[in-house]
Structure formats: structure tokens, C-alpha cells
Amino acid sequence: MTIHVIYGTETGNAEMVADDLVEALEGDATVTARDLADFDPAEVAERDFVILVSSTYGEGELPNSAQPFFARLEAQAPDLSGLTFATFGLGDSFYETFNHGSRTLADKLRELGAIELGERGVHDASSGELPGEVAVEWLKGLLGAHGARIMAGEATAEAAS
């Protein structure tokens, strides 16, 4: 089983968060980080897990690198019922549309049948906190609550060997 950390970004903060999540997960699972611009949901196998990381731009819109992905989901409406995922959003509470981008993406995945685990994590650029640190804390909480289910692919493989 693989954990795919996929990110939508404009200034690179979401990419940095994705790198930090990969680093935190390495050793426990096979993990990859990829820009949403180059990601096709068809690549995800049944037992895989997706961590979606995205910022917000404009008037609560998706960052540039997530837009083609979202458009593809809208146009093709693939069946994502095999997919489980969790969401971490980056935004700035200065904007009324705080963190709408990550919510839009998560809503879409759920609408297409995917199952979201845990609470959506959020980073607020105005908080002065490091995005990576907030994200890794969130990840700990997520794994604490749902780790067994997320790592199920791994655990089965271990039990078999």
C-alpha cells in the first residue's frame, strides 16, 4: 500500500507541507509527494491512502496547480468509491473565504464516492505558525485515530510474511 501526498499550491507552502508529511511518514509506509497538476486519481490502488494538501486563492478558489485536476474530476466524474483520504488546507484568516480551497476539493472527492477520514487540518498564514509543524501535529492526530485503518494494507502484508 502507498500513501500519496498530493498538493495544490501557488507559492509553494503546500509543497513544503507535503514534503514534511512524507518525511514524517517515511519508514512506516511507501509515500510519495506529487503536485496535483501531475496527478491522476486512476493511479491510486484499492488499499492506498491519499493525503490532500491545498491552499486557497482569489476569492476562496483553488490554487493554480489544483485547477486542472478539479476540472478533470468535474468533466470525467470518475467513481472514487475505493478511495480513502484526509485533507490538510492552507489559508489565511485575513480572507473571509478562509480555507475554502481545501474544502472544495474534499467535497468533490466525497461527492465522487471517496471516504474522508478524520477532521480536516488547517494552517492559518496569519498565525505565525510553521505550516509543516501544524501539519505534522495534525498527521499524528489522524494516525492516532485512524492509523490502523490507513496502514491496513501494510499490516496485512506484515502479517502474511
Binding site: G12, M16, D92, F94, D124, A125, S126, G128, L130
Partner: peptide
């Protein structure tokens, strides 16, 4: 008065 926009420096620092 836009500290959120300046926060991108955290990324550059690393």
C-alpha cells in the same frame, strides 16, 4: 499589515 503574505519567508528560510 499583511503578515500572512510575508509568511512565505518561512519556506525560504529552510
Amino acid at each position: 499589515d499583511h503578515p500572512g503574505t510575508k509568511a512565505v519567508t518561512r519556506q525560504f528560510e529552510r
